[in-house]
Design a protein around this nucleic acid. Structure first.
Length: 503
RNA sequence: CGGGGCGUAGCGCAGCCUGGUAGCGCGCCUGCCUUGGGCGCAGGAGGUCCGCGGUUCAAAUCCGCGCGCCCCGACCA
């Protein structure tokens, strides 16, 4: 441990001991989002030390700062899973190739992107093994063994793991060959129950996105073309990124009896009749980190929502002389203890040789929601200076007494959390249109979402995609306004859909 | 998998056209000095020039074949 690190306490172990380096990029400024959103994203991920490129194309190394963020995401989700009766388990990485082949649309959907192991221990394998692209099949195999009776149901299992899909075009967090996620798999006695579970988990993802990540999302149903390979119905939460494009941020599938039939997951009901189970699966991945970056970030860098930020507050001590330093550090240490006692994730930036100005910029780039500046003047006045990350410059600065500091910080973090959500929602609203005709629709999807009636036919969806590059992101659960006419063909349409260019 | 761009120090690049001692900026290390918005000075370390093959007295440079990365399109969490 070096001198600039703060030390963890049992009460507040996460985040405090993360060691950060100086940005290794030579250019001090990021590209702006308006000049090159994609490059802004790429450089930011690297410079903020969230992730790095791996030696294998399309793979990523998640660095400690990025993983700390992921851990906070997993904790928030896991808590919700447990609260709704789910338990965690671990299923194997390697799956017999034949398992994938058992469900027709599943194999069609996943075959092109499978990584296959053909040699083990130097010998050609009798049956190739695929590295799981998702675990429906191997879990189906296990459930078939475990489930005999209606008394065994429901089975509510989740696993935290990584999966591999051989994607052609990759981007850190958004689409990598290997990605980390959770996949929940449940089995039920009835279709109603399975549908209820599917919708419940969609609600949980929505709640997580809104209340933890401050990311407004639209929960909805996927069109047939966007449905998961092997699902009866797929639901997703869709979020708008800072460039107006859509990102699918979490999915929940009602698998019907497709996998139950493929793997003979059956139970004896109360009448003594053999029935196939109804299963679901649902997942949220490290892609969500990409959503947080692209929803909240600005031209200075990341802005992390306080509830998920590895560091919620960074204290920058300011001093010239040794005398000043000892005075400042004494107060900094005392404040840190108070904040840790209040469960606030805090870091004191004790790095020597970097100017305060440098540290301000450095932590802004890393997205720490709140900064405390603490110098000799503040020590003398028994006060501190706060700077809010979501309000750059003087506007976000305030001069506050050291008395009751923990409550002050907690309040400010709550405010920041709320303002991030409000801002993201306002941005989405400002970039969502309800076009009345196809010409207006085309303009709308150039820079945001178009919410329009759609007849539901694949032909219309395909033609829209071809002509505008926009796809049906989802059919929102919330539908108001009754039936209408399809934006393209004019035929009767029951529902509106969100159309947008997508990641 | 098609189109484009690029592989030279940790990062960003120059050098290549016209073959002949491998350079610049940032970062890194040491010391001094600074510190309330990306300080400064001095010294220093760091290179299979993506790989393989060819041409040549001589290849970062010319030729051929690979490999990789990034961006843009078709497929996907």
């Amino acid at each position: 441990m070096t001198s600039f690190q703060s030390y963890p306490t049992l009460k507040n172990p996460a985040g405090c001991i993360l060691r950060v380096g100086k940005s290794s990029m030579s250019d001090q400024k990021l590209p702006t989002r308006s000049e090159d959103f994609s490059e802004w994203y790429n450089q930011l991920v690297i410079r903020a030390e969230l992730a790095d490129y791996a030696p294998v194309r399309g793979c990523m190394i998640v660095r400690p700062y990025g993983w700390a963020l992921w851990e906070n995401i997993t904790a928030a989700l896991d808590k919700r899973f447990k609260a709704t009766g789910h338990v965690n388990a671990a299923f194997p990485l390697l799956i017999p190739r034949s398992f994938i082949d058992k469900e027709k649309s599943h194999v069609e959907g996943f075959s092109p992107e499978l990584a296959v192991v053909t040699i083990g221990g130097g010998e050609e394998l009798e049956e190739p093994l695929v590295i799981r692209p998702t675990s429906e099949t191997i879990i189906g195999y296990a459930y078939a063994k475990w489930i005999q009776s209606w008394r065994d149901l429901p089975v509510l299992i989740n696993q935290w793991n990584s999966v591999v899909r051989w994607e052609l075009r990759t981007k850190l967090f958004l689409r990598t060959l290997e990605f980390f996620w959770q996949e929940g798999h449940t089995a039920h006695a009835t279709n109603d129950e399975a549908e209820g579970e599917t919708r419940q988990m969609l609600d949980i993802y929505t709640d997580f996105a809104v209340n933890e990540a401050a990311v407004p999302v639209i929960p909805g149903r996927k069109s047939d073309s966007e449905r998961f390979a092997g699902a009866e119905r797929t639901y997703s939460i869709e979020a708008m990124m800072g460039d107006g494009k859509a990102l699918q941020a979490g999915t929940s599938h009602n698998l019907g009896q497709n996998f139950a039939k493929a793997f003979e997951i059956r139970y004896l009901d109360k009448n003594g009749e053999l029935q196939h189970c109804w299963t679901t699966s649902w997942g949220l991945s490290t892609r969500f980190i990409g959503a947080i970056i692209m929803v909240h970030g600005d031209d200075q860098g990341l802005i992390l929502p306080p509830r998920l930020a590895p560091f919620q507050l960074v204290i920058i001590p300011i001093y010239k002389t040794e005398d000043e330093k000892s005075g400042v550090m004494e107060v900094a240490t005392r404040i840190r203890s108070e904040l840790i006692a209040a469960d606030i994730r805090v870091k004191v930036d004790e790095r020597e040789g970097y100017s305060p100005g440098f540290k301000f910029n450095d932590w802004e780039m890393r997205g720490v929601p709140l900064r405390m500046e603490l110098g000799p003047k503040d020590v003398a006045k028994d006060s501190v200076v706060f700077a809010r990350r979501d309000r750059p410059g003087k506007e976000g600065k305030s001069f506050v007494s050291q008395q009751g500091i923990a409550a002050t910080v907690a309040d400010m973090l709550r405010e920041i959390q709320k303002s991030l959500f409000d801002r993201a929602l306002a941005f989405r609203e400002a970039n969502t249109q309800h076009p009345e005709n196809y010409a207006a629709f085309k303009t709308a999807v150039e820079k945001g979402f178009a919410r329009s009636y759609w007849c539901g036919r694949a032909e219309c969806e395909a033609r829209i995609k071809e002509e505008t590059k926009a796809t049906a992101r989802c059919i929102p659960l919330e539908q108001s306004g009754g039936p209408g006419k399809c934006i393209l063909c004019g035929e009767p349409a029951a529902d509106q859909a969100i159309f947008a260019k997508a990641y």
